[in-house]
Design a protein around this nucleic acid. Structure first.
Length: 255
DNA sequence: GCGACAG
DNA sequence: ATCTTGTCGC
């Protein structure tokens, strides 16, 4: 896979102001409508045949750290079958700053995606997409750079506000996350993502919801639909879990 | 100045 | 994200 829009590559050498300017440009280039050619109903776990054509290839992307180096792992699968796994290690040039995550972790992610020999229909990232100060989170940024449908799945909320109280909701429940005054390029109240309860126990440990948002070429409702089809009884979607496990494996070899 | 803050 | 033992439960 090669970057289709290299002018948008997340360069850690940019000044903080240049990074923010690039994010506004990335958000302007992003498409938040369902602009993909597969049938979202074909995206699921299991081994059943697709309704129409071949089942989509979903790539889960996750990162792990080794001191001042970052490891990005990508696991591509078609339902339950893993088709390809690649990873890359690069030096981390800048510290973590809320809102600038793609500039810190973009290096290893781009390097790993460039090693992919197959081309996935959907990219699933651990982090936000539109739920971001300039609607240009990790998922949006990389989705635009590779011009590939992408979705962001975060375990906590960066910005914006859920329309309803999210505590103790039943499995399958979802509610809108709307822009607040910290989202610089959206009208307050605009829907930028969902809080989605992917898993919930009958009692005790109350599980927090997932914060799902479009990266590129996917709408808010569809982003959550896709994620819901990939959570096989676990809180996190399977592609992301596989990438997480592979990142740990790769990490162990560089120690 | 205070509070918020993906991974 | 990462540093970490034990522990509760299916």
């Amino acid at each position: 896979m090669r970057p289709v829009r290299p002018e948008f590559l997340p360069d850690p050498a940019l000044s903080r102001e240049e990074m923010e300017t690039l994010q506004f440009d990335v958000a302007a280039a992003a498409d938040w409508t369902d602009a993909f050619d597969f049938d979202p109903r074909d995206v699921s776990l299991g081994t059943e045949a697709s309704l129409t054509g071949e089942r989509p290839l979903v790539a889960g992307v996750d990162q792990a750290f080794l001191g001042d180096r970052g490891v990005s792992a990508v696991v591509v699968s078609r339902g339950d079958t893993v088709v390809e796994r690649v990873h890359a290690v690069t030096d981390l040039e800048i510290p973590y700053v809320p809102g600038l995550l793609s500039f810190r972790e973009g290096g290893p992610i781009v390097a790993a995606l460039e090693k992919l020999s197959c081309d996935p229909d959907l990219l699933l990232f651990d982090g936000s997409g539109r739920i971001h100060f300039r609607q240009a989170g990790l998922a949006t940024h990389l989705g635009v750079v590779f011009d590939r449908p992408s979705v962001g799945v975060a375990k906590s909320l960066l910005c914006g506000r859920p329309t309803e109280d999210v505590d103790g909701r039943p499995e399958g429940w979802r509610t809108d996350v709307v822009a607040d005054d910290t989202v610089e390029n959206a009208d307050p109240g605009e829907v930028i993502g969902h809080a989605y309860q992917s898993r919930q126990y009958d009692s005790e440990p109350i599980i927090n919801p997932l914060y799902v948002s479009p990266g590129h070429r996917v709408s808010v409702p569809t982003a959550t639909d896709l994620v819901s089809r990939l959570c096989g009884g676990y809180k996190l979607p399977e592609p992301t879990r596989r990438a997480d496990a592979y990142a740990d494996e790769a990490k162990a070899e560089y120690r």
